[in-house]
């Protein structure tokens, strides 16, 4: 009996002594945390993976000033260019009207395409529960260009006169993304493209595609990214290829830099998804080096 008593006392002392440590105060504090949902942040670090948009939207009041470049050489050479024969530069402005809604415009200097987009993220991935495993955004882009040329012919659209040379393209996407862990994120984007003109010989205006993109963080500020679009009904009269990109994204405070290898020359989605006429390899004319620089400016600041 006495031994049992001593055992109980020893146990009791042990029990009370653990209760009393500061560690226990921390446990008590853990119970005090309010039960509010936690959402994933930074599924991708940038609003573009490389070729096209990621799931990310900037917080309200953020203005993104961007310069996207693609450099390539002409297959036949014959041009004295610095570093590369040709360059397409898209100058763009994106503004975040709310935390989940962004609109932007841009202009490409080589293909002379003006584009504008809206992006609305309406589902956010939850971190603390399995209820919402994905983030989902809707993306709508409209592009405009004049396809008139001296010859009066366009490889895709056939005979073009000055009067009917305006080409509008509309791209609609759902972007479905998931951050699998701190390093790996991926997204798929079912895409629908339609234009005001039909491809001359195919007699199709609309195209369906599926975009796939992923990033893998190799450091705190650097990630490897890749993107690919599978085109389900490519134009038959012209040989086109699916756009592919592999590259590196690097964030430097407010400046986000992207370096990439790709076969996509254009920046407007209807152009590079449906009308990329060169395959991904290292031949001149096919190999494109991409360099994107984006500066994030905060037009409204949080009050502390």
């Amino acid at each position: 009996m006495k031994i049992i008593n001593q055992k109980y006392i020893a146990l009791y002392i042990l029990f009370t002594s653990t209760i009393c440590s500061a560690q226990n105060l921390l446990k008590e504090l853990d119970k005090e945390y309010p039960d509010t949902p936690t959402y994933e942040i930074a599924t991708f670090k940038t609003t573009r993976i490389g070729l096209s948009h990621s799931i990310e939207t900037r917080k309200k009041g953020a203005l993104e000033i961007s310069m996207f470049n693609r450099f390539w050489n002409r297959p036949q050479g014959g041009k004295q260019g610095f570093l590369a024969d040709e360059v397409n530069i898209r100058l763009g402005l994106d503004y975040a009207f709310t935390d989940n809604f962004t609109a932007g415009i841009g202009y490409g200097t080589y293909d002379k395409i003006t584009d504008g987009f809206i992006k609305y993220k309406f589902v956010r991935q939850r971190k603390d529960s399995k209820k919402s495993p994905f983030s989902i955004a809707f993306y709508q882009e409209a592009s405009f260009r004049n396809i008139y040329s001296e010859t009066g012919m366009n490889p895709f659209y056939g005979t073009v006169t000055k009067d009917n040379s305006k080409l509008y393209g509309f791209t609609s996407q759902f972007i479905i993304a998931r951050k699998f862990n701190t390093k790996f994120s991926a997204q798929i984007s079912p895409t629908f493209i339609t234009r005001n003109k039909s491809f001359a010989q195919d007699d199709i205006k609309s195209q369906f595609a599926l975009g796939m993109g992923a990033r893998y963080k190799v450091g705190h500020h650097v990630s490897i990214v890749s993107e690919y679009y599978a085109n389900f009904n490519p134009v038959k009269s012209v040989t086109t290829y699916n756009p592919f990109m592999i590259g590196v994204n690097w964030e430097l405070s407010h400046l986000l830099l992207q370096f990439q290898m790709t076969n996509a020359r254009n920046f407007a989605k209807d152009a590079f998804i449906g009308q990329t006429t060169n395959n991904f390899n290292f031949h001149d004319g096919n190999f494109h080096f991409g360099f994107n620089a984006t500066f994030v400016l905060h037009t409204s600041k949080n009050k502390l």
Binding site: I41, A42, K45, R58, K59, K60, G61, A62, H220, H221, E251, S253, H254, V296, H298, K301, N302, L304
Partner: peptide, 15 residues
Amino acid sequence: VFKKDLMHEHFNDSY
């Protein structure tokens, strides 16, 4: 909470 929201993202994700 940071004055600039991008700092919040970088603080949490990169640092």
